[in-house]
Amino acid sequence: MIEDNLDIARDIADRVERFVRDQVVPYESDPRRDHHDCPEDALITELRGKARSAGVLTPHILADGRHLSQRGTAIVLTRTGLSPLGPNACNTAAPDEGNMFLLGKVGDELIKQRFLEPLVAGRARSAFFMTEPAGEGGAGSDPMMMKTICQPDGDHWVINGRKSFITGAKGAQIGIVMAKSEEGACMFLVDLPDLAIQIERIPNTIDSSMPGGHATVKISNLRVPARQMLGEPGQGFSYAQIRLAPARLSHCMRWLGTCLRANEIATDYANRREAFGKTLIDHEGVGFMLAENMIDLKQAELMIDWCAGVLDSGEKGTRESSMAKVSVSEALMRVADRCVQVMGGLGVTSDTIVEQCFREIRAFRIYDGPTEVHKWSLAKSIKRNWKSAAS
């Protein structure tokens, strides 16, 4: 059972919200942003400097190294999500947040000092190298299909393979690479950039809140000291599971914040804009959409809190995080779509974050497992439980 430090979390969240609204939101129109927000990390460095000065950098990890409970983390990360730039500014963005959680749980002192500390301090970005190109039959939603291999060579391991949709690979200083050995999956910490890891392409994607984009990379004879393997050969999948459920839920937290802000913008517009003799909010077609948003946003908040409570109890939360991911991503998609609709032509422009919110949430329905994969997994568990009860 993890200590529930909600009073501390609420105090941190209030400070985070003030910072995001007052200091981060003005950067949403910064001309340095490109399709992946921060092309040379200059904007992130500037924002993190401001977050550090405000005392809200990596706010979910306390000064003594303790991690807030998942329920507390939800309160804080939702506030960082009030701007698409908020998670990058506060150092709560994916994949860094999930990587910090994993290394904090399973890393030894050397790993924590060399790789975790720079991440917590906001001096480095990281990438998680697991997904592989679909056309080559590699790992996607099914990590058991992994093709990247690793072989021991003296006091090193040599890794070869290709990875795709590796978020933040461009510009990252730290990588967590998954590969398959004779014993099973392995997980390695590597310094980046490395000439053995070459970025082949970075496709333009529907989302634009993750610096470095989602790269396809080729790994050619990457030599990694055995000391930089997490755990033992064959433990890679079990470590990935430690990261999996909390990382799914963190996405829900951050994008809930983004949708709360988009709904604020749409609500303000509906109460100011007049058409056909009255404000839009007074037209049932618009008012009802905003009422439905209120319902979906509360549903998402409660699902996140419920799943966070399960994780805080010490359970793995695999099924619960699947349920939360499906429920929250689908609810937030409805919210984002209605916000665009309420705002009409303005809603499809970049004059507000509403258009970006819609794109980000659409991608979220795929990232960390498409809705259909989670439903399929849940259906399998239903069948298992039925057979167990019937036997």
Rank of each mutant, 00 (worst) to 15 (best):
N88A: 13
L103V: 10
L116C: 02
V120R: 15
L116T: 03
P118E: 02
F128R: 00
T80L: 06
L82N: 09
P87M: 07
A124H: 05
A121M: 06
F128P: 01
G86P: 02
G98T: 09
G104A: 06
G86A: 08
E132F: 06
F115S: 00
L82A: 04
F101W: 14
R123K: 14
G107D: 03
R79Y: 10
G86K: 07
F101M: 05
G104T: 02
F128I: 00
A93E: 15
A94R: 04
L102F: 11
T80H: 10
L116P: 02
R79C: 09
C90P: 05
A124K: 10
E117C: 00
T80M: 10
L102E: 07
T131S: 12
V106C: 07
P87Q: 09
P84C: 03
R79D: 09
T92M: 06
R114T: 13
K105F: 08
T80R: 08
L103C: 11
D96M: 08
S126W: 07
L77V: 05
S83T: 04
A127D: 05
L103K: 06
E97H: 12
R114W: 01
A127P: 04
E117S: 06
F115L: 01
M130K: 04
L85G: 07
E109S: 13
V76E: 08
G104R: 14
F101Y: 15
P95F: 01
L116G: 00
V120E: 11
V76C: 09
P95D: 00
P133Q: 10
A121L: 09
R79I: 06
E109L: 05
G107A: 03
P133C: 12
A93V: 10
F115C: 01
V76M: 07
V120C: 11
R79E: 15
L85D: 05
R114E: 14
A127H: 08
R123N: 14
T78W: 04
